[in-house]
Design a protein around this nucleic acid. Structure first.
Lengths: 365, 365
DNA sequence: GACTTTTGTGAATCATAGG
DNA sequence: GCCTATGATTCACAAAAGT
């Protein structure tokens, strides 16, 4: 099923289009998307092979799409797609760009020169980065994202309460600790090799989309790649438009996105309330994919149940709040430790959600 | 007491000079400093006052020195001081610059345009940042530093072992958690107000100077401010040159630095690298009688073996060559560090031949 | 089946002395 | 400047393999 955005002519939604992203953006009506997430080529300029101490070869990015002859050419490319993005972005929409020190300074400068107004730079701290094999530099353990609006006075969306709930009731900071994409989440080709060299983790897009869009809004990704943006947008009840140069990746992404089940209830992904959270915020279980939004939780003996929302709160028929508050409410008790009260259904058996917390804790040390 | 750097004419060391940093740098001889740390104005572009939830006023940076009329003017200023810095920096010296999203993209772009080669971008994560009072953005909890050399092929200093030791024997990452400067460390004026609006913590400079300079080298800071760079350089047995536009700050910094006692023992501030230890050819072990010709060497788990020849080569059934070549050959690997691969049999146990090298090294000292 | 050990790998601007 | 020989160097996590 295809959707068309209202009030902007006919803009096909939830599709992956193949072609040059600047041309494809120029075909869209002015002010037709609410948010843009862009993961442009990083222009790595690598020389020669890198070998690990055990003599295995590092499978680095050496694709043609990452090759530029000079900074001048990279700058021209950057300004072109940023200008096209600016036109199709609504006046109160926001733009996210991710990059590394190879390209992010060019991107930031271009943004400012094109009169975008930077709201934050946000650091993705990788919990499991590739080490520096030669011992000649600091381990490159982060990437930088820039969050910007079209104009200094734009009235953009920032779901402050959702971000606070996701961070143990503390303001969300500009440094985010999130693992790189590995394991089941990493898409593989028929030979079992990584299908895309730079697939981003869903947890990263979860936080980005939840922070700066509302349900039903349109997220565009001009460098769609493996389609992480589309998969997360769909799961969170947002629409997406994916633009991708290579047909192989576009097909891969379409297949991936089609498997994602959107949350059926908009309340699960809408503006959350300000609530108390445990020390490991419950929302992190959702963000990190240990729990899907919409998962049913059960009280002891299945006498009670509640549904998980994307921001880490629960909802029942007549009440919503933290795992503790909802647990207390359904029992009519003054207080409740939600971590011990709530369970998930695993092959017919109940398992306390605290097990998931412990799992996450051990993963994060 | 004043020092003068050797071999560069008369360069006065451990002094704070007052004036325009570009002019002062142009007065110094070419290639006269080993490292530059720069904390330039951030060009914050603040509008109006910021008020806390309790209605107290935030004491923000609103000094004249942080005012620029446009990005164009800021870029010109940046390129001027970066060009002057490049001239006085030794070919194998490195440059550190710190900034926030307001200016760091301009700085990074200018660096690349002036042919500096970026080694890392390093994130200073503040453990105690100022919160975002308005709840309209992510808490601005970090600043960005860029570490660069003059040329891609420069042979710069990186004290890998010192950094690893400082990080619990794990490689030092590109994200550093360090508190902002408060308490006793924060310089106060006679009224008890902070004496400088952007005083950097000594812990930050400690890590920077320790990572990329050797004892006795010269660190220059073109925006000296409260003199953190000088204080830490002096304590770590390095020389400094401070340049500062405002006489008030220069006087403050001189007073601060003069109170610092340098470490008396150079061994306390120098972590020698394995790379810098004298090279010991394997044959010397045979020559000096630590290994007899004919001794059998074993690979890990005794899966391989080879015999020592009198000239310091090894021989197996079908191949002979250096410890590295034979190690690579028996494994079918492209390369091998023979010092770590080969072992001798000592009372039934395997002992790496590297132990013998260390023994010989200590005997030669 | 539970537990331990080994192996694989990820956006990386990753060496240097001496002939 | 180029080529060759030597030799310095890895963290977190997951999956597979082994006990």
């Amino acid at each position: 099923m295809r959707f068309f955005a209202r009030g902007t002519g006919r803009v096909e939604l939830d599709v992956v289009k193949v072609g040059d992203c600047v041309k494809l953006m120029n075909d869209l009506p002015e002010g037709s998307v609410d948010m843009i997430f862009a993961d442009p080529p990083y222009n790595l300029q690598l020389a020669g092979d890198l070998v690990r101490p055990d003599h295995s070869k590092v499978d680095a990015v050496d694709d043609d799409w990452d090759k530029f002859d000079s900074f001048k050419i990279y700058d021209r490319f950057t300004r072109e797609w940023l200008r096209a993005a600016r036109r199709i972005l609504k006046d109160n929409g926001t733009l996210w760009v991710i990059g590394s020190y190879h390209n992010i300074f060019r991107v930031g400068t271009s943004l400012q020169d094109l009169d975008y107004w930077i709201l934050n730079d946000v650091i993705w701290r990788k919990s499991n980065p590739m080490p520096n094999f030669r011992g000649r530099r600091f381990t490159n353990a982060h990437e930088t994202m820039i969050w910007a609006v079209k104009d200094k006075d734009a009235r953009y969306t920032f779901n402050y309460e959702a971000m606070k709930a996701l961070n143990d009731d503390l303001q969300m900071r500009s440094d985010w600790l999130i693992p790189i994409c590995t394991g089941h989440e990493r898409l593989r080709d028929d030979e079992g090799e990584k299908a895309h060299p730079t697939q981003k983790p869903e947890a990263l897009l979860h936080r980005i989309i939840l922070s700066s869009t509302k349900p039903g809004e349109v997220v565009l990704d001009p460098f769609f790649g493996s389609g992480t943006t589309g998969a997360v947008a769909r799961r969170l009840g947002r629409h997406f438009i994916g633009l991708e140069r290579e047909d192989t990746y576009a097909r891969l992404a379409r297949k991936r996105v089609s498997k994602v089940k959107p949350v059926d209830d908009v309340n699960l992904v809408d503006t959350p309330s300000k609530r108390e959270q445990p020390r490991i915020p419950f929302g992190w279980l959702v963000e990190r994919g240990l729990l899907e939004p919409g998962t049913m939780l059960y009280g002891p003996g299945r006498r009670f149940n509640a549904k998980v929302r994307a921001d880490g709160t629960l909802i029942t028929r007549d009440f919503k709040g933290s795992i503790h508050q909802v647990g207390a409410h359904v029992q009519g008790a003054p207080a409740c430790n939600g971590w011990q009260f709530w369970n998930i259904n695993v092959e017919g058996k109940l398992m306390p959600i605290d097990v998931l917390r412990q799992k996450l804790r051990s993963e994060m040390n």
